[in-house]
Design a protein around this nucleic acid. Structure first.
Lengths: 124, 124
DNA sequence: GTAATCAGTTACCTTTTGGTAACCAGTTAC
DNA sequence: GTAACTGGTTACCAAAAGGTAACTGATTAC
């Protein structure tokens, strides 16, 4: 039996891994959306996301800055304030997120046979 | 200051989370691709992915079966064989994966300023 | 002085994830 | 009988991720 060729698929997986690393995890997308929505300051972002701890937010923001999804600016005011703003690069994630969302909605239908339940803590 | 409205974005995140749960993690995509390529049997899949352990493969296959990405059939032959085959539903992931890949390639350019290095263990 | 706000850091602990290797039952080949 | 294959399971560890809470240093308000 001839050896299977899956080398090309595998090399395609490297960038897929990169993307998953950038947006994966429990908090990254929540934080990004919070910033997209206009939350700029550390405590503001923290308070906008229930159950998110200072420590994790701190770490995630660093990751996201490294990945050029956000820019961190220290404003030399008197209670020193930090400002986080989204980059243009972060906006390009929109398409990816939409695709993930579409598949997710469809997947739920497949698995549960229905649309996702409204979650009172989230939906309008 | 008026309270920020990000409830609709948040509910959109539920299906996004679902998708990330289905394809996230270190092995799921590798395993799925291996099966897409024609590897059908447990040991065959295991051997096709270096460093993947029996235990993890076993667990991942169960998850993937639950998510209807693969079908597990037990063939009542003499050395009892099990066959894993991809579902049509799994094929719909193609688009998602492509989108993740595109973004990843672009992201690498942004971050490293160059295309990803060829990885001798994977590329042709 | 006391308390509270800002933006985090640090130490400690728990939970989850992943890895190693032994093992089981059944069958085949030697 | 012995070894090797099939498809896994089990017990035990190690590493990583995540949570809790205390604390820093600076400033502002009382």
């Amino acid at each position: 039996m001839k050896k299977k060729e899956h080398k090309e698929c595998m090399s395609a997986l490297l960038p897929v891994r990169d993307t998953l690393d950038v947006i994966g995890g429990k908090w990254k997308l929540l934080i990004l959306i919070s910033i997209w929505e206009g939350n700029k300051h550390f405590r503001e972002i923290e308070r906008s996301i229930p159950k998110l701890s200072t420590k994790v937010l701190s770490k995630e923001l660093k990751d996201m800055e490294e990945n050029q999804l956000i820019i961190r600016t220290v404003l030399n005011g008197f209670p020193v304030r930090t400002e986080y703003t989204p980059t243009e690069h972060s906006k390009t994630l929109g398409k990816v997120i939409l695709e993930l969302q579409n598949w997710g909605v469809n997947h739920r239908k497949k698995i549960f046979g229905v649309m996702p339940e409204k979650d009172s803590s989230f939906s309008a």
